[in-house]
Design a protein around this nucleic acid. Structure first.
Lengths: 252, 252
DNA sequence: CCTTGACCCTCACGTTGCGGGAGGCGGGAG
DNA sequence: CTCCCGCCTCCCGCAACGTGAGGGTCAAGG
């Protein structure tokens, strides 16, 4: 079972040039040559090529692939497990990036202008650990955010505008309740807190009472969000947070 | 608010050389120079750099990034949505690769030697569409597989050996029931079918009756898996499939 | 005032993983 | 015997920087 470069290239989905390159750098040298100098690959070569393509697909540099493949203390099952790990790690990293983008969307939704520095804080640095922490601390898990992701992906510009309008309407009415002098744990305030929760559930993700109180804490804790509410009416962030907590307790 | 290359580099998490490069190719030229020829970046430059980093992180070539950024008919929200889409698409692709690897693991678990060509069929070609279809058709969704992924990632060599032993023990007992002449819908056969399901649930993923019958169909439909059972005892694939179906119906 | 050290500048060549072409043999079909 | 396709070996080019070399600059401290 000997194959020519062309045959191997076709089977493996790579170009002939690639095989030449692998030969040049000694990563995959055909097991033999024909009289005229034609490369002749056998089944073992094909298997090796397959492994090379595995690792390449995962973004490994060729040099490292050579090191891995030429390490005698490694079996195929081990390879599979390693690849599996690597892939899931990558997926994790990408999901963190998705989370970061979603935070950006959340901020935009509220018309919070991030300063350049803040923007770099949130997006510029994709250091895995730092971001996992941020996301975890902020959102206590990413389930809700992935849900949000799926939904918002399908939203049109009109949808966003309608969402904004609803938000603003809610803000106006909530400010009115505040102005009326009603305490944060009054039925009127709590009802609007509940409405706020349902607004989020309808537009973004299933917002449980637990998540909602988490958001409330963020509204008072994170100046970027605090400011947003303070601009609607001074004291609103704290007032809303209290109303959300009261609402969550009374409905639990 | 003017910054030097070093400051910008630090803030954005890139090297000075990168900024020089961006300047060279005209992707990001500082808004001005000092008397001594020092590059001076302003806030607008920072914002642009941030966008560049966004797209870079997503794997866009610099030239395309320039085209996107210099397109006047594009707003930031649109950018975010596009990035979001791209990221989720990537995640999808990676999940397909994970699924492919998991199929390989399933095959190895059963000691099915794939021929080089078959291996290329399964792994060598990561054409998105082809694989999405394969995975969907085979597994009807990837939830179970992701579950399996999480679990098997932590398995040691010993775990795999124990799993193999349990499998072989089950195979022997199932072959005995077949040899006894009991029909596939007899209690003895159905009990072992149920045991098979629980074996999978314990080792890999929560195997519902629905998934289990799906596997059964695969055992008779895919020659690679059929052969595995046929080698234990001729006729076993079909017999097992029938037993699994009978078991699923009776317990539903 | 002058030195020191941390910056900044502009070349300019090196790297990775190939793409693509030139110029020249080899080999099976007609 | 001739064709054309496939193979061969150079070799140049690409992105997106890394990594010096060789030299100017700026703010602080002696």
């Amino acid at each position: 079972m000997a194959y020519t470069v062309g045959q191997v290239a076709k089977a493996a989905g790579v170009t002939v040039r690639t095989l030449h390159h692998y030969d040049e750098i000694g990563l995959l040298s055909p097991s033999g040559r024909s009289g005229a100098g034609y490369r002749r690959y056998d089944d073992a070569d094909l298997e090796r090529l397959q492994l090379i393509r595995y690792y390449r697909e995962l973004g490994f540099p060729l040099e490292e692939i050579a090191a891995i493949l030429d390490d005698p203390a490694s079996d195929p099952a081990e390879h599979l497990r390693r690849q599996h790990e690597l892939l899931t790690a990558r997926i994790g990293k990408l999901q963190e990036m998705v989370a970061a983008i979603e935070i950006a969307m959340e901020a935009r939704k509220m018309n919070i202008p991030l300063t350049p520095e803040e923007r770099f804080e949130v997006f510029g640095d994709f250091d895995p650990d730092a971001h996992a922490e941020e996301a975890e601390r902020r959102w206590g898990g990413t389930e809700a955010y992935r849900e949000s992701a799926r939904r918002t992906a399908g939203y049109s510009k009109d949808d966003w505008l309608r969402n904004k309008a609803e938000n603003e309407d809610w803000g106006r009415r909530f400010a009115e309740v505040m102005a009326s002098g009603a305490p944060a744990d009054s039925p009127a305030a709590m009802d609007l807190a509940e409405e706020h929760r349902q607004l989020i559930s309808r537009w973004f993700y299933d917002c449980s009472y637990e998540i909602h109180t988490g958001l409330a804490d963020m509204y008072v804790g994170d100046p970027r969000f605090t400011e947003y509410f303070e601009k609607i009416r001074p004291g609103m962030a704290a007032y809303l947070a209290e109303a959300i907590h009261a609402n969550a307790i009374s409905r639990a």
